Simulated assay, not measured.
Amino acid sequence: MPVPLYEAKAEFFRMLGHPVRIRVLELLQDGPLPVRDLLTAIDVEPSNLSQQLAVLRRSGIVTATRGGSTVVYELAGGDVAELLSSARRILSVLLAGQSELLEQLREAEGERKATA
């Protein structure tokens, strides 16, 4: 029995649900990078980075090319960069909304103290 589309989408987002994986994808938006450059840019143990890269590779979201002892990773397609850009836009709106709510709460607290 085929997996329903909503379950496949949920699995896709679960695969993205790790900070190191998101950071790798952000870095690869600017082009292919060798593992040593990813390690320099991300403060994690090599074994942790290797695990996260393996998850991204198995999912097909990144590809790896070996040249001698160097492994270079790159995004498998431009849609990932577009997804990350969309996520930034959504977060900007959400965080702006939270900032406005926080300001309203502070104003209400100030008014409460002034009348007390």
Rank of each mutant, 00 (worst) to 15 (best):
residue 61 I to L: 14
residue 75 L to N: 02
residue 8 A to D: 09
residue 42 I to D: 01
residue 104 Q to G: 11
residue 16 L to A: 05
residue 52 Q to T: 01
residue 61 I to V: 05
residue 69 S to D: 14
residue 52 Q to Y: 00
residue 58 R to F: 05
residue 85 S to I: 10
residue 42 I to P: 00
residue 99 S to N: 11
residue 50 S to M: 14
residue 95 L to T: 14
residue 89 R to K: 15
residue 50 S to H: 13
residue 63 T to N: 09
residue 91 L to S: 01
residue 72 V to P: 11
residue 38 L to G: 13
residue 60 G to I: 00
residue 111 E to P: 04
residue 60 G to T: 00
residue 40 T to L: 15
residue 115 T to M: 08
residue 25 L to N: 14
residue 38 L to Q: 09
residue 27 L to A: 01
residue 54 A to S: 03
residue 70 T to K: 10
residue 55 V to P: 03
residue 6 Y to H: 15
residue 45 E to A: 07
residue 40 T to M: 09
residue 114 A to H: 12
residue 90 I to S: 03
residue 18 H to I: 05
residue 82 E to G: 01
residue 113 K to Q: 15
residue 72 V to G: 12
residue 1 M to T: 02
residue 64 A to E: 14
residue 104 Q to A: 14
residue 113 K to H: 14
residue 67 G to H: 15
residue 12 F to G: 04
residue 37 D to S: 13
residue 28 L to W: 01
residue 13 F to L: 15
residue 2 P to C: 09
residue 82 E to N: 03
residue 37 D to Q: 15
residue 77 G to N: 03
residue 36 R to S: 15
residue 18 H to S: 10
residue 111 E to K: 10
residue 70 T to N: 11
residue 54 A to W: 02
residue 77 G to D: 10
residue 26 E to D: 04
residue 3 V to D: 05
residue 99 S to M: 11
residue 48 N to I: 15
residue 97 G to H: 04
residue 25 L to C: 10
residue 67 G to M: 07
residue 61 I to Y: 04
residue 83 L to K: 03
residue 87 A to P: 05
residue 4 P to S: 09
residue 42 I to N: 01
residue 15 M to N: 03
residue 93 V to R: 14
residue 35 V to E: 07
residue 85 S to E: 13
residue 38 L to C: 11
residue 35 V to C: 06
residue 62 V to G: 00
residue 39 L to R: 03
residue 105 L to A: 11
residue 91 L to K: 05
residue 42 I to T: 02
residue 60 G to S: 01
residue 21 R to F: 00
residue 89 R to G: 06
residue 64 A to C: 12
residue 82 E to Y: 09
residue 57 R to T: 09
residue 92 S to W: 09
residue 78 G to D: 03
residue 3 V to M: 14
residue 42 I to W: 00
residue 47 S to H: 08
residue 116 A to V: 09
residue 45 E to H: 07
residue 112 R to K: 07
residue 7 E to Q: 13
residue 110 G to Y: 04
residue 105 L to C: 13
residue 17 G to E: 07
residue 71 V to F: 08
residue 95 L to R: 08
residue 83 L to Y: 07
residue 5 L to R: 05
residue 21 R to H: 00
residue 109 E to Q: 10
residue 64 A to I: 14
residue 52 Q to H: 06
residue 56 L to G: 15
residue 104 Q to I: 10
residue 46 P to L: 00
residue 81 A to H: 02
residue 59 S to Y: 07
residue 4 P to M: 11
residue 51 Q to V: 07
residue 60 G to R: 04
residue 49 L to S: 10
residue 106 R to I: 08
residue 44 V to C: 15
residue 22 I to G: 01
residue 102 L to D: 08
residue 8 A to L: 14
residue 79 D to H: 13
residue 94 L to N: 09
residue 65 T to L: 12
residue 21 R to D: 00
residue 38 L to K: 06
residue 11 E to H: 13
residue 52 Q to M: 03
residue 100 E to C: 07
residue 25 L to E: 13
residue 1 M to E: 08
residue 59 S to L: 10
residue 67 G to P: 04
residue 22 I to T: 03
residue 7 E to T: 06
residue 90 I to N: 07
residue 71 V to P: 05
residue 82 E to I: 01
residue 66 R to L: 02
residue 41 A to W: 00
residue 84 L to T: 08
residue 32 P to I: 02
residue 106 R to L: 14
residue 58 R to E: 02
residue 114 A to Q: 12
residue 42 I to C: 01
